[in-house]
Design a protein around this nucleic acid. Structure first.
Lengths: 343, 343
DNA sequence: TGTTAGCACTCTTTGTTACCGAGTGCTAAT
DNA sequence: ATTAGCACTCGGTAACAAAGAGTGCTAACA
């Protein structure tokens, strides 16, 4: 559908615009090494490319910039994977250099490094807790009225919540409860806890504890998995340095959306494994009109755990970002698998 | 040092500028209800006020704006406490309406509400963990090599860290360790744990456990209190709506500083109890040149727990913000005292 | 027939000029 | 002591010109 020459010209336009953020004119193009024909020829080809919807003008006599359709084509057909340099690799390795065991911390460091290497904003959707299996429940009474329930999952994730103790419950009662809970629920996926609690544990509690229903509700309430997994960000302010965000209104929209988190969550979550690229309005979000979002997933073994993403202007260094995401997500998966496979 | 009339004029200038963000001229002033003399008179008085350093011009023939010295005087001498309206009070009450027990969540909600009521950025320094006393330590083994240590404090704060298990340690060993730890350390302030651990617990461990030193180090590492207490923010993007931040560079500086957190920490922490006001360069921070920071402390009983603050432009509604901070910090202290006094 | 030189045209950017309005400082009259 | 009046200053806006970058189209060229 596109001739080789059109392809070449298009590629050079996109590459140049990604670098300079300035519309690219025929004269600029004709001076490039890769290009050996005159500006007039280029103008003709550009007119065709524009008619096909790959490039646009900002005004009648301006140079061209890639359209969203153009970026899409560029990303789908013209991208050559970029080789990471020594510095990048070194930086990524440094995520895992320190002996940290907590999943969350590793993930958080990844977000930070990723934003530093790209100068864009990085977003990491933390490890999904819902598939974790319960390792242990513990209850620590603080005083007569309140206690803390703590649950530990097989990946080492810890959740805790305070709750009200029913009256007239003593330490030995609590101990019984904890024993029953661990006995019945250990090993079960967090998702199923609530169900099991009422179906299996309720009966047992009744035999041992007075006012067991109040207690049960408190525990059920405590055990509920958070609806959203944690989001980690890196370089939230990096977008302020991008020329397309010299307009305060755009910045405000974007920042608000980042601050809200819910919107981000929707954008990040529903992605297949591997690399996903959403360009501009493909994100279906007015605050992201000038942005692209590239996501990659990381996993333990075959189980997809979370998502790691870069948010940048549509004029983004796609090739570099994809390479980095691929590299980090692979490393992340490898390290995590090694740490937690045998759980 | 200032005549009554100068005082009046100065006050009206500040009040007007806080509202409009526009330099105030003599004609505008002469039209105000409070003011019954001519613009020429006002001009003379303004010249004096400028000579005294309370107000400034933005250019030779502009109206006047308050100087930093002016704001300082205004805040120290002219502030009349503002009465909160029904809506404000209702909003603040809503922080405590839901039955939440976790300190952190209450504090976080306060930050959110505060930013919504003021349209500035709110910062809350979370409850200091260092003075908490240890309630319970627990260790949950995840697999042969790793375990999680969980500590619970008397205020219900939970910290957890993963650590490497020494080889050849079994469940009963771990149980012994936990018992010893709780026996010896429960009730001690977190700050003193490290010390006690090596002084008192080490001896005991030696008798019961092989390779006790490795274990000890892991535990010591785990028990370390975080150097910084948690910061909570509300309305990080609110500043983008202030006219003084139409300049992207200023926004970038400020946002970066907020994102870093360390700088904020320094600003917030070293404040006496009660209300503290830092205006513009008094903050000693170039990113905050156009900002004022008002802090208040909250406490349980007489023990100062944390700080609650508002970051806004120097042209801030001081009176309203101070009233709000006073009100919230008092409420916060009252509720927290009630919940945790009897710990 | 594909390529290119040339040219008229368009649109943005930049600089100049002029002018209005808001505000000031100073002087002189009240 | 207060104020009316006036000359002056400065920012903002609009109108206009000129420069520069780029385009589309036509006609000449290989």
């Amino acid at each position: 559908m596109l001739t080789d020459r059109q392809l070449l010209i298009f590629q050079v336009i996109v590459d140049d615009f990604i670098q300079t953020a300035q519309p690219v004119g025929s004269r600029t193009l004709s001076k490039k090494e890769e290009i050996s024909f005159s500006s007039a020829t280029i103008r003709n080809e550009m007119a065709d490319l524009e008619e096909l919807g790959f490039i646009e003008k900002t005004h009648t006599s301006s140079g061209r910039i890639p359209s969203e359709k153009g970026y899409r084509y560029y990303v789908d057909h013209l991208l050559s994977p970029q080789k990471l340099n020594q510095y990048d690799i070194h930086k990524v390795q440094s995520i895992f250099a320190e002996r940290i065991y907590e999943l969350e911390k590793i993930v958080q460091r990844s977000a930070k490094i990723l934003s530093e290497l790209t100068n864009y904003t990085s977003i990491v959707l933390g490890p999904a807790v819902r598939d974790n299996k319960l390792k242990k429940i513990q209850i620590v009474p603080l005083n007569k009225e309140t206690a803390i329930a703590i649950i530990v999952t097989d990946t080492g994730h810890v959740e805790n919540r305070m709750f009200h103790l029913p009256e007239n419950i003593d330490a030995s009662d609590l101990e019984k409860v904890v024993n029953i809970l661990n006995d019945r629920l250990a090993g079960a996926p967090l998702e199923s806890l609530n169900n099991k609690l009422y179906k299996e544990v309720a009966v047992l509690l009744r035999h041992h504890i007075n006012n067991y229903d109040l207690m049960l509700n408190s525990i059920a309430d405590t055990i509920k998995i958070p609806a959203y997994d944690k989001l980690f960000f890196g370089g939230k302010t990096n977008m302020l340095s991008q020329p397309e965000f010299h307009d305060i209104e755009k910045v405000k929209n974007l920042m608000n959306m980042i601050e809200q988190e819910e919107g981000i969550y929707d954008l990040i979550r529903k992605n297949k494994s591997g690399i996903n690229i959403k360009i501009g309005r493909e994100n279906n979000n007015s605050a992201m009109e000038n942005c692209s979002l590239i996501t990659a997933s990381y996993s333990i073994g075959t189980e997809q755990l979370g998502t790691i993403a870069i948010l940048g202007p549509t004029r983004m260094e796609y090739s570099r970002v994809i390479s980095l995401l691929n590299y980090i997500s692979a490393d992340l998966s490898a390290v995590l698998s090694k740490l937690y496979q045998n759980r």
